[in-house]
Simulated assay, not measured.
Amino acid sequence: MVALGTLPVRVEPPVTVLLAVLLDAVIGEPPETIHPVAIFGRAIAGLDRRWPSPRLVGLAIATLAPVSVAALAWLAVSALPRVVGTVLAGLLLFSSISLRRLLGSARAVIDATETHPGRARERIPALVGRNPEPLSSPQLRSGAVESLAENLADGYVGPLLAFVVGTQLSLSVGIAAAVWVKAVNTLDSMLGYREKPIGWASARLDDLVMWLPARLTAVILAVAGGRPGALWRARQFRTQPSSPNSGWPMATLAVVLDVRLEKPGVYVLHPDAQLPDGDTATAAIRVVAIAGAIAGLVSMLLVAVPSVPESLFAMAVGVARC
Rank of each mutant, 00 (worst) to 15 (best):
1 M>C: 09
7 L>R: 10
8 P>Y: 07
10 R>H: 02
11 V>E: 01
15 V>T: 14
17 V>F: 01
22 L>V: 14
25 A>K: 11
27 I>L: 10
29 E>C: 06
29 E>D: 13
34 I>F: 11
34 I>L: 15
38 A>I: 08
41 G>Q: 07
43 A>G: 14
45 A>W: 02
45 A>G: 07
45 A>F: 02
46 G>P: 00
47 L>R: 01
50 R>K: 09
53 S>N: 12
53 S>C: 11
56 L>W: 11
58 G>D: 02
65 A>H: 07
65 A>Y: 01
66 P>Q: 03
68 S>K: 04
70 A>Y: 11
70 A>G: 04
71 A>W: 03
72 L>G: 14
72 L>Q: 07
74 W>P: 12
75 L>E: 03
80 L>M: 08
81 P>K: 02
83 V>C: 06
83 V>L: 13
86 T>P: 00
86 T>I: 09
94 F>Y: 08
95 S>V: 10
95 S>C: 13
96 S>I: 12
100 R>I: 15
101 R>T: 14
103 L>V: 12
107 R>T: 11
108 A>P: 08
108 A>D: 10
110 I>F: 04
112 A>F: 09
112 A>R: 07
114 E>D: 13
119 R>I: 06
121 R>M: 11
127 L>D: 05
127 L>F: 03
127 L>G: 08
131 N>W: 07
135 L>Y: 04
142 S>L: 11
144 A>V: 15
146 E>G: 10
147 S>W: 08
153 A>V: 04
154 D>W: 00
154 D>S: 04
160 L>F: 04
166 G>A: 09
166 G>P: 07
167 T>G: 02
167 T>N: 05
168 Q>H: 11
168 Q>F: 01
169 L>R: 09
171 L>W: 01
174 G>P: 14
178 A>L: 06
179 V>Y: 06
183 A>R: 13
186 T>R: 06
191 L>S: 09
191 L>W: 07
191 L>V: 13
204 R>D: 09
210 M>K: 10
210 M>R: 01
210 M>I: 01
211 W>F: 05
211 W>Q: 02
214 A>W: 05
215 R>Y: 14
215 R>Q: 14
219 V>Q: 08
219 V>W: 10
221 L>I: 14
223 V>W: 12
225 G>P: 13
226 G>I: 10
227 R>E: 03
235 R>L: 00
238 R>T: 04
238 R>P: 00
239 T>W: 02
241 P>Y: 01
242 S>M: 13
242 S>T: 09
249 P>C: 04
251 A>G: 04
254 A>P: 12
260 R>E: 04
263 K>I: 06
263 K>L: 04
267 Y>M: 05
267 Y>V: 03
268 V>S: 07
268 V>R: 12
271 P>F: 01
275 L>N: 00
279 D>W: 03
280 T>G: 01
280 T>I: 13
284 A>W: 09
286 R>L: 08
287 V>L: 09
289 A>D: 11
289 A>P: 15
290 I>Q: 12
294 I>Y: 02
295 A>Y: 08
296 G>F: 11
300 M>Q: 12
300 M>V: 06
302 L>G: 11
304 A>E: 03
305 V>L: 09
305 V>K: 01
313 F>E: 12
318 G>H: 08
320 A>L: 03
322 C>L: 12
322 C>D: 02
